[in-house]
Computed example of a mutant assay.
Amino acid sequence: MSMKIVSMYCTGCSACESECPNDAISEKKGSFVIDAGLCSECDGDAPQCRAACPIDDCIIKA
């Protein structure tokens, strides 16, 4: 599994991008996306992207 950013909730703040240890997050058309092939859900730890995101329910398990 990987994490997914719900584009309709993403404000484009970029808080998640710098927190990803796998560089799986990038900007696309004003919001951010997670490359499922690179996302490891932080290997069992709490997903860092979700912890950094200021919007509840913006980043979910795919």
Rank of each mutant, 00 (worst) to 15 (best):
K29Q: 13
C20I: 09
P47R: 00
G44H: 07
P21Y: 05
D35V: 06
I25D: 11
C39Y: 11
K4Q: 13
E27N: 05
G37E: 15
E41F: 07
Y9C: 01
I25M: 09
C53Q: 11
D56I: 04
D56L: 10
D35C: 05
I60W: 06
C16W: 08
C49S: 08
P21W: 03
E17I: 15
C49N: 10
C49T: 03
L38W: 00
P47Y: 00
C20W: 05
D35Y: 10
D57H: 10
C53M: 10
N22A: 00
G37V: 05
D57I: 01
D57Y: 08
D45R: 04
C53E: 08
K29Y: 14
D57R: 08
C42V: 06
C10M: 07
C20N: 03
D45V: 03
T11C: 01
E41R: 14
S31P: 01
A62R: 06
A46V: 09
V33R: 05
C13Q: 09
C49Y: 09
T11W: 02
E27Y: 01
F32Y: 15
M8P: 01
C13N: 07
I55N: 08
P47Q: 02
A15L: 02
S14M: 12
D43L: 13
K28R: 14
S14G: 01
S26T: 10
A46Q: 10
A15T: 00
I59G: 06
S40N: 08
I60N: 05
D57E: 15
P54G: 10
A24V: 13
D43V: 05
M3G: 15
S26Q: 03
D45Y: 06
M1H: 01
S18Y: 03
D56M: 07
P21G: 06
E27W: 01
R50A: 09
K4V: 02
E19V: 02
C16H: 10
C49F: 09
R50M: 13
I25V: 15
I25L: 11
S26V: 03
C39L: 08
G37Y: 04
G12D: 09
C20R: 04
G12N: 07
V33D: 04
R50D: 07
F32L: 11
I59L: 09
S26K: 07
P54T: 13
M1E: 12
P47I: 00
K29V: 07
A46E: 14
E41P: 01
S18P: 00
C39I: 12
D57N: 15
A62F: 07
M8C: 01
S14H: 13
S14Y: 04
G30L: 11
I59E: 04
K28T: 06
S2A: 14
D35H: 11
I55S: 04
G44T: 04
I34G: 06
G37S: 10
I25T: 13
S7Y: 02
I25K: 07
A51F: 03
C58G: 08
G37W: 05
P47T: 00
A62L: 08
S31N: 12
Q48M: 14
V6K: 14
I25H: 11
Q48S: 15
S40W: 03
A51H: 02
R50K: 13
Q48E: 13
D23Q: 00
E41H: 05
G44C: 06
C20D: 11
C20K: 02
V33A: 05
G30V: 07
E19F: 03
I5L: 09
D35W: 03
A36T: 03
S7C: 02
V6P: 01
G12F: 08
